[in-house]
Simulated assay, not measured.
Amino acid sequence: MEKFIENLMYNSRWLLAPIYLGLSLAVIALGIMFFKEMVHLLFHIFTLTEADMILIVLSLIDIAMVGGLLVMVMMSGYENFVSQLDIDDSKEKLSWLGKMDASSLKAKIAASIVAISSIHLLKIFMAAEKIDNDKLMWYVLIHMTFVASAFLMGYLDKLTKH
């Protein structure tokens, strides 16, 4: 009975596979959104103010960073929790595949969230005159919470590795 339960638990990791595959659909959706923003930029390039153009470019950077985060979570999550990716030697292999354990994945995710939050906060600062001071304060506090969380996770990870 014990062996059956252990095998069932071990094999249940495959329930995560469709979730990681589903993240690839989110990457496709981000790609569509990216090119929608790009078309908007190109069609309005001569009528946009500099600030509006910077906001659109920051949105493009934001989308690209979220896409990178999704790919990182999708690929390394699959490798860490489901099965090792069997990529043919003749194909290009990402240098970090197989080298990122759950702890380093967590640190990379936290750093990515801080970077994405920073870009979002910069976009908000670009339009600060349109935003209520209380809302602005909350945006900064939320961002600082992400920064502090990432720092504490890194610090705790460093403590546990020694």
Rank of each mutant, 00 (worst) to 15 (best):
L8C: 10
N80R: 10
D62T: 01
S76W: 00
A64E: 10
Y20F: 08
M38G: 08
S12K: 00
Q84W: 00
V27Y: 06
S12E: 03
I63Y: 10
K36N: 15
V66S: 07
F81I: 00
Y78L: 08
L8Y: 07
L48N: 12
L23T: 00
Y10A: 13
V73D: 05
L60A: 09
T47D: 14
V71P: 03
S24C: 07
N80I: 02
F43V: 01
T49R: 11
L21H: 00
L69T: 07
I28H: 03
V57E: 12
L42E: 13
M9G: 06
M9S: 14
Y78W: 06
M72P: 04
L70K: 07
I87M: 09
I5M: 07
E2A: 14
V57Q: 10
M65S: 11
N7K: 14
F34S: 11
F43G: 04
H40I: 06
D52L: 00
P18V: 00
F81W: 13
G68K: 12
T49F: 00
E6P: 04
G22R: 04
M33R: 15
H44D: 14
L58T: 04
M65H: 10
V39P: 01
M53H: 09
I28P: 04
E6V: 05
E2I: 08
I63V: 05
L70D: 11
Y10F: 04
I45V: 06
M33N: 14
L41A: 04
E6Y: 09
D86G: 04
M9E: 13
S12H: 01
I5S: 12
L41P: 06
G67H: 02
F43A: 06
I45M: 10
E79K: 05
F34D: 10
D62Y: 11
N80G: 15
I87E: 13
I54R: 14
Y10D: 13
I45E: 08
F34H: 14
S12P: 02
L70E: 04
D52K: 15
V39L: 06
T47S: 14
Q84H: 14
F81S: 13
G77E: 10
V71E: 07
G31S: 05
L58C: 13
A64N: 12
L48P: 03
F35H: 07
I5A: 09
S83W: 06
V71N: 14
Y20C: 00
L85C: 09
L8F: 09
L15I: 03
M74Y: 02
K3R: 10
H40G: 08
K36T: 05
V82C: 08
M1I: 03
D52N: 15
F81T: 07
Y10P: 05
L30G: 14
M72F: 09
M65T: 11
Q84V: 06
S24E: 08
